[in-house]
């Protein structure tokens, strides 16, 4: 177990470092000059040159990278060119909203996907199965941003049940939750459609195994066999997909937060890229990558918790 943890931690750090290098390179290769962002298009070339020198933008790229990553290692993500505040503060302000949205999105995906998938598998070849598979096919085919707009048109504009966008802050919990319902739905519907299909096919595969017959022979009800015997055995592929979907949901917040005007990290990423706000973008991409890598790590732990036969993987 300890060996496993050490290995995983090293793997985690290597991945994050690799990502930081790639992000840094990409952001520096992209056209656009931060000094223009800061001083405005009307600024003089002299002023810009002075600022570039002050910010160290004229240093060789490897020097700038080392300077930046050394700061990151000490918890200093640099100062945003655009907002003129430490990037750490920017992120801390917006993190709760994005984390809530991602958590709700993942939760809704898992619940909806597994429930629908199990219902489809239990009704294999019958109407319920067909309907769920048809809807999930539709769900997979719909882009999340378009679905978001449809949801806004129906539930916010026409029915006026829910706000079309914006976020009042967690000081008003009810209003905050209400404003997250549509974004969560938009995030989760597409992902749960994928998960429902995986759950269904995994459950159908397990249903054919001998121990299901044993459970039937010992007088178990269909529901009990499904919930206690089939589903746990179908979980390994489901958990694998959920791990990948955490990544999809986290990156999905970028689009969703922009559609719904939610002041979270996704919106910050978008603004920062437009503004060539190098430090902010770099920090955010590294943060998103860390979330995804952590999700994969949790998936590996989950495998072992689900299946005692995989205990060997821990050493």
């Amino acid at each position: 177990m300890q060996v496993f943890l050490i290995k995983r931690t090293l793997g985690f750090l290597t991945t994050i470092l690799a990502i930081s290098v790639i992000v840094f390179l990409v952001m520096n290769v992209l056209p656009g000059d931060p000094s223009v962002t800061i001083l405005g298009i009307d600024s003089s070339e002299d002023a810009r040159a002075a600022l570039r020198a002050q910010l160290g933008l004229d240093d060789p790229i490897w020097q700038r990278y080392l300077h930046w990553i050394w700061g990151v290692a000490q918890g200093d993500f640099g100062t945003s060119y655009f907002f003129r505040v430490p990037v750490g503060e920017l992120i801390a302000e917006r993190l709760p909203l994005t984390l809530s949205l991602a958590a709700f999105g993942t939760l809704a995906t898992v619940v909806l996907g597994i429930v629908l998938g199990v219902i489809a598998a239990a009704n294999h070849g019958r109407a319920g199965d067909w309907i769920i598979m048809l809807l999930s096919q539709l769900g997979i085919a719909i882009p999340a941003f378009w679905l978001s707009m449809l949801l806004v048109l129906l539930f916010a504009v026409k029915l006026r049940w829910l706000p079309p966008g914006g976020f009042p802050g967690w000081d008003e919990p009810v209003a905050a939750l209400r404003s997250l319902i549509l974004p969560t739905t938009a995030l989760a519907l597409v992902q749960s459609a994928v998960l429902a299909r995986v759950t269904r096919s995994s459950a159908l595969e397990v249903m054919r195994l001998d121990f299901v017959r044993t459970a039937r022979a010992t007088g178990m009800t269909r529901g009990r066999i499904l919930g206690r015997h089939i589903l746990p055995n179908a979980l390994v592929p489901i958990v694998t997909i959920v791990g990948m979907q955490v990544a999809a949901v986290v990156t999905g917040t970028i689009v969703i937060e922009n559609v719904f005007y939610l002041p979270g990290l996704g919106r910050l990423v978008f603004q920062s890229i437009s503004n060539r706000d190098l430090f902010t973008v770099q920090a955010l991409v590294v943060l998103f990558a860390a979330i995804v890598v952590t999700a994969n790590f949790l998936v590996d732990i989950a495998y072992v918790l689900i299946d005692p036969r995989l205990k060997g993987r821990l050493s």
Binding site: R216, G219, M220, N233
Partner: peptide
């Protein structure tokens, strides 16, 4: 279902996968 296990029980050919592995 009420008969199974209480009145009549069955064992099968392949004991390898006849038990829930988890």
């Amino acid at each position: 279902r009420d008969m199974r296990a209480r009145k009549v029980a069955m064992i099968f050919q392949e004991p390898m996968m006849a038990l829930n592995p988890l």
